[in-house]
Design a protein around this nucleic acid. Sequence first.
DNA 1: AAGGGTCCCAACCGCGTGAGG
DNA 2: TCCTCACGCGGTTGGGACCCT
Length: 268
Amino acid sequence: MGRCLRCCGDESSGGVKKGPWTPEEDQKLLHHIHKHGHRNWRLLPKLAGLNRCGKSCRLRWINYLRPGIKREKFSQEEEQTILHLHSILGNKWSTIASYLPWRTDNDIKNFWNTRLKKKLIQMGIDPVTHQPVIIDHYSMVEHALRLQQELEAQLANLRYLQIQYLSTISSYDDNLNGSIITNMEPFGLLNSISTISNENHNPVIHFPQLDSNNNHNYASFSDGIIGESSHFFDLSQEREGGTTINNDNSSWIIPPTSPSIAPDDDVN
DNA sequence: AAGGGTCCCAACCGCGTGAGG
DNA sequence: TCCTCACGCGGTTGGGACCCT
């Protein structure tokens, strides 16, 4: 970094002191400002007997010596105010500071850069736009894969419970064709599976119905994970004693036991 | 105890702007 | 209209304090 030539001159002209201010320098500056004010920052250091540039004096006064500056930690209310103002004004630190006159723009800027910005990022909020961060393609794929795994785990449980349910109803075909289901408890259990992997996933089980084209009975499950995607299972296959359940695209091998519910559990 | 990393804040720097000649 | 100067602002840095291994 070079010296600010415009106000401080260069090294050959003797230069001025840089770095932290000493208590003696603070006293000199305070004494001078109390006595003469600070009408001309460029002349002030000479008049005050300070080997500093005017800019440095001004900054020391504004950010540290000026009366009424609050130096304690930022309160929750101040934090909220800064967040709100920043969402409207952006990095207009002096404007934001005008709403908190006991804080300097430098303090607010430091507080933002060291605390609030990181806090927002951790919360998944873009500190510039104050909007939730849009995840990139890679993250999106990872997210989708994870959801798919969770979904498949749920479906495994659903399949097992389906079998349990089917074994509890005696006149299966007749009742389902008319959509008359007397024992709803298994469906309640199916709905409760949402807690298996994620409480936000909320499968909704629709009534089994007759497919008029091929005479198969279907139950559909809207999983509530990605939009309203549904999974259709051919119940007839199971009723006929087969080992597979077909959904709209593929066959599923029925597991010998449920991943989460012991075979001996009474699902009724 | 020591050293490396991180956090935090005071201070610096360069640029934009407006006033005045 | 142009130039110079002083001021104010926002970005950045330096270094002490603190934390972790």
